[in-house]
Simulated scan of single mutants.
Amino acid sequence: MKSKCGVLLCLLMSSALALANTGVAFVHGTGKQTNAASDYWQWDNINSIRQGLPDQSNYTVINCDFEQYMWDSRAAGCLAGQLTSFINNKNITDLVVITHSNGGNVMRWIMSNPTYDSRYPNIISKIRWVNALAPSSKGTPLANAVMQGNVFEAALGWLLGYQSDAVRMQQTSWMDFYNGNYLLGTSGRPALPKGFWNVVGTDVETSIFDGDSYCGGYHLNLGLEITQAWLNSCSDGFLECSSQSGAGQVWFYDTSRMRGSEPLSHNQSRRKCFGLDTILRNDL
């Protein structure tokens, strides 16, 4: 685990933040969301995290069509529009972005391509840092399997959706290309203009006798344990650890900070599980 700032930098940041108007944006992952607060993040999680704000009304929950390629007007364009409205309407000068899964790719597109859209530079200037929960920075072998159109596709429909552009984009070879040419923050590429801090999920645990297995929904965690068979031993059931840690910097691996050293499945990392909400709250 790395500290987000040194002692001197933290003192300087604390002084600056005392004068800032801080806000938080919740950016969902793959899917076309119309009510991400209820359907994706859940209100108990959002309400817990936003308690860390000086003004708890300074939050926004993004609802965009992340079934599209990250640069699409319905994906990054929609995200840029909603973030711009939030910044302007609330006069936000210090923005913490919390993303999950493919939402990290859409945020990295904005942060990596400031000349692509006239709204991007102002958004980047307001960002303090991005907290990326299980980001799919290097894609997933599960997307490879879905795009092959075999029987595995049907088994994964509930998790990824079917052959959408977002799933196509998250194939490992495709993400290698984007990372090497259009996105910043991976090894050998220039750094992102603002911090991109990863929370990495390392395993899926499902036991009917273990109450922790029910956090976020037992049936969803069970599905992720099944898909984990197609991934390497360090994975959250959807993404391998190498993908989650592939861009920016690792903030922490789940078992080092979660209550009871519990791992976070891909579903649990967007839920109020094992004290993750408290860590995110305190980070504001």
Rank of each mutant, 00 (worst) to 15 (best):
W41V: 03
D44F: 14
D44M: 02
N45R: 13
N47D: 13
N47S: 14
N47K: 09
S48A: 15
S48W: 14
R50I: 15
Q51C: 01
G52M: 03
L53A: 10
D55A: 07
D55W: 03
N58D: 07
N58R: 06
T60H: 07
T60C: 11
V61A: 06
I62S: 09
N63P: 07
D65W: 05
D65K: 05
F66A: 10
E67R: 10
E67N: 13
M70A: 14
W71G: 10
D72T: 06
D72K: 01
R74T: 06
A76I: 05
A76Y: 01
A76T: 10
A76E: 08
A76W: 08
G77N: 05
C78Y: 02
L79Q: 08
A80E: 11
A80G: 13
G81S: 03
G81V: 09
Q82Y: 13
L83W: 05
L83N: 12
S85E: 10
S85F: 04
S85T: 05
I87P: 08
N88W: 08
N88M: 11
I92N: 10
I92L: 12
I92G: 04
T93W: 03
T93R: 03
L95V: 05
L95W: 15
L95H: 13
V96K: 14
V96M: 09
V97W: 08
I98R: 04
H100Y: 12
H100I: 01
N102G: 07
G103F: 11
G103Y: 07
G104E: 03
N105H: 07
V106A: 04
V106C: 03
M107Y: 13
R108M: 08
M111R: 03
M111W: 01
M111D: 00
S112C: 12
N113F: 10
P114F: 00
T115F: 00
D117F: 07
S118R: 12
S118N: 12
Y120H: 03
P121H: 11
N122H: 05
K126Q: 11
I127L: 08
R128E: 11
W129H: 15
V130Q: 06
L133K: 05
L133W: 13
L133S: 14
A134I: 02
A134D: 11
A134W: 00
P135T: 01
P135L: 04
S136W: 03
S136R: 00
S137K: 07
K138R: 11
G139C: 04
L142W: 04
A143M: 03
A143F: 07
A145P: 00
A145N: 02
V146I: 15
V146W: 02
V146H: 12
M147Y: 04
N150K: 14
N150M: 06
N150Q: 02
F152N: 10
F152L: 08
A154G: 15
G157Y: 09
W158D: 15
W158Y: 15
W158M: 09
L160I: 05
G161P: 01
G161D: 15
G161N: 05
Y162A: 09
Q163W: 02
Q163P: 08
S164K: 06
D165L: 13
D165V: 07
D165K: 01
A166R: 03
A166W: 11
A166D: 12
A166T: 08
V167R: 07
R168L: 15
M169G: 03
M169R: 08
M169Y: 14
Q170T: 05
Q170W: 00
Q170Y: 00
Q171W: 02
Q171P: 09
S173M: 12
S173R: 13
M175K: 14
F177R: 11
G180N: 09
Y182L: 15
Y182Q: 15
L183R: 01
